[in-house]
Design a protein around this nucleic acid. Structure first.
Lengths: 120, 120
DNA sequence: TGACCATATGAACATAATAGAATATATTAG
DNA sequence: CTAATATATTCTATTATGTTCATATGGTCA
């Protein structure tokens, strides 16, 4: 966004990538992979989701280029292919924190300002 | 994600924020606001979307704390409340670029590797 | 080969997100 | 007050996304 205008296609790609990160199960998967590669079975256990669901989320992350897979015997190991995801999450965390703090402040400043206690 | 485990609620908040950025119209709105505040009418013109649609997207961004609004007469001016969105977009752009370059490389390496040209 | 295990995929269903038309609200001008 | 304008909201239809169950695929081992 550094001043230049992005065309619709690019914007759609960026949006798509944000959407890819916009699911708590996928975020949990990525977080679980932060320490290194894991098998699907591991990830199923960690997330508590169904195997089919985990597998599909992993395919989405794979097609998006955020993770890689490696087969070893019967097991498939996934790992993070782009560390930027963690940077993104950190920035979002900061943004969220700032937002929530502002909200708190706002609420504190309006204490008891939720409408009249008396009728008419 | 700096090594600590995030609970489900936090993860959902983060995912929600990513989803907020996961729409091309909203990204276009944010980009349009990068140069400073704009009225809704301006934004409708810029995006080419319906007024109702723009208004709804702006409400989403507002509730997410990414933009602020200011009323002046009949007009409402929106502005970016959290510059981190641009940082996020830039990181995503970098991530996308890396991914697409890798894809290209991959394709180049496999040139003509798309199956036999002859039948049986 | 067949039995078995891990992972992926397909189909059906439920839910969420989005757009568009119509309408409501808020503000100013007369 | 009414008319006019800018913005917000409601309602509805449609589409996208996610979950689950069942099944397919790919691999190992006897």
């Amino acid at each position: 966004m550094a001043g230049n205008v992005l065309n619709d296609k690019t914007l759609e790609l960026i949006a798509e990538r944000f959407r890819l990160l916009g699911d708590p199960v996928r975020l949990r998967l990525l977080q679980s992979l932060e320490g290194g590669e894991r098998s699907v079975a591991d990830l199923v256990a960690v997330t508590g989701a169904q195997q089919a669901s985990v597998s599909k989320h992993l395919q989405l992350l794979l097609r998006g280029g955020l993770v890689e897979r490696r087969r070893q015997g019967m097991f498939v190991y996934y790992s993070v292919a782009d560390d930027r995801v963690f940077e993104l999450c950190n920035v979002v965390c900061g943004s969220l924190t700032a937002y929530l703090e502002k909200e708190l402040e706002h609420l504190a400043g309006r204490e008891g300002d939720e409408g009249p206690a008396t009728v008419s």
